[in-house]
């Protein structure tokens, strides 16, 4: 099962199992020591930053949903909304493999057409890779 999030009008699908919870961003507190979700210190960033996507449009409403990636991946990403859920097997995938990697789709493992919109899949290993990158930055 994949959760679909809306990020600057792009749809990204990520495995439900990497997501700890979905919540409103108001529950995040910041103090001099950083950003906290309850008692847990987290890295908070926008989904655009997390997925390193190009922002085509001005998107002033930032964002209403906080998606926390699981405990061993201490990061929370701000998306615009949760678009829905989908089973990967229910979609026809349109892979461009090598070509899309060449064009810089480094975290996208496959692309599907979903309700006449492109759905960019990010798999678990890509998320782990990205979190590791961020932790070492």
């Amino acid at each position: 099962m994949q959760i679909i999030i809306n990020v600057s009008d792009f749809l990204f699908a990520l495995p439900v199992k990497v997501v700890e919870k979905v919540a409103a961003p108001e529950i995040v507190t910041t103090n001099t020591e950083g950003t906290f979700l309850g008692q847990i210190r987290i890295n908070l960033m926008t989904a655009e930053e997390f997925f390193k996507i190009r922002i085509n449009k001005n998107n002033p409403k930032k964002s209403l949903i906080l998606l926390t990636v699981r405990q061993e991946l201490p990061i929370a990403i701000l998306a615009d909304s949760v678009y829905g859920f989908v089973r990967e097997g229910d979609l026809n995938c349109f892979n461009r493999g090598e070509l899309l990697k060449m064009y810089g789709f480094e975290y996208v493992s496959k692309i599907c057409l979903y309700k006449n919109r492109l759905l960019f899949f990010v798999n678990e290993s890509s998320i782990e890779k990205r979190v590791t990158e961020l932790l070492w930055e």
Binding site: V7, S8, D9, F10, F51, K52, I53, R54, N56, L100, Y103, G104, F105, E106, V108, R117, L118, F120
Partner: peptide, 11 residues
């Protein structure tokens, strides 16, 4: 569809 990635000319 808009492209979230790619060089500037790949929109």
């Amino acid at each position: 569809h808009d492209s979230p990635y790619g060089p500037d000319w790949l929109t």
